[in-house]
């Protein structure tokens, strides 16, 4: 199958990038999108050109490394998957595919389709943890946790930190990411102790890093490869207000 690829090429963080068009006929419907890019890269290398740089590691939808903006969708037109799970069978023979990196001030482009997502780490470092030292934990059964709360916590904690929410949001807001982390801990008794400091610190860091503000459009939820709900954002807001009031 043949595709016309318009891919953002940018040598490094400081250089000015541009779209480069590749007419590529080495695709096939059973390839994944990233395998198609691998194949394109092979042809580029053989011609002595630089291959398209993109992040990917586990290629099974869990590490969160991959992620690119494909034809107006983060991770492509199929809902609830990462880019590595996107199959070429969703594209038509002869189709034009525009591939762009995540666009956000807080996610500067490193090269081609690779962006720097360290901002997420900084938010997590600000308070995304429970302060307990190795060796000081009580028996795992010392604190029972309500099953539905534990299940909710799990649904929040499956975030893979891929940045899709930021990429999808028209405001480049990181609220879904932050709320998933805050929610996970807020739902656990052991996480409640430092809940107030946590939510304040994480929000403050999020703001400082230049993410946009949430306007409840729901684009993040619609595109999240792990289907994380904006109910988490509402919970984050509650947590924040109660932290501010007390």
């Amino acid at each position: 199958m043949k595709v016309k690829l318009k891919i953002w090429r940018q040598k490094n963080a400081v250089s000015k990038g541009k779209f480069v068009t590749y007419d590529f006929d080495g695709a096939s419907p059973e390839m994944s999108f990233l395998e198609m890019l691998d194949a394109l890269n092979t042809t580029l290398i053989q011609k002595g050109d630089n291959p398209v740089a993109f992040d990917s590691d586990c290629r099974e939808g869990i590490c969160g490394a991959c992620g690119m903006y494909i034809n107006g969708y983060p991770n492509g037109p199929v809902k609830g998957i990462t880019t590595c799970h996107l199959s070429m069978r969703y594209f038509k023979d002869g189709q034009t595919i525009v591939v762009e990196p995540w666009r956000a001030k807080a996610f500067p482009v490193v090269k081609d389709l690779i962006v720097d997502r360290m901002a997420f780490d900084k938010i997590q470092t600000a308070g995304g943890f429970i302060s307990t030292n190795v060796g000081s934990a009580p028996d795992a059964h010392a604190i029972p946790v309500n099953k539905s709360k534990a299940d909710d916590a799990f649904d929040s904690s499956i975030c893979i930190g891929c940045g899709t929410c930021v990429a999808a949001c028209k405001n480049a807001s990181a609220m879904l990411f932050v709320s998933a982390k805050v929610s996970q801990y807020a739902l656990f008794p052991q996480g409640k102790i430092e809940a107030k400091e946590r939510v304040k610190a994480m929000i403050q860091t999020m703001d400082e890093l230049g993410f946009g503000n949430c306007t409840n459009t729901g684009a993040c939820e619609a595109q999240c490869p792990k289907n994380i709900s904006i109910i988490n954002i509402a919970r984050l807001n509650r947590e924040y207000f109660s932290a501010k009031i007390n």
Binding site: T132, S136, A137, A140, P144, K147, Q184
Partner: peptide, 18 residues
Amino acid sequence: DHYTALGVPFARDYGGNL
């Protein structure tokens, strides 16, 4: 014990135990 204290959401039963 340590992972539980760190907030790892292991599966639980209705009694709240792991």
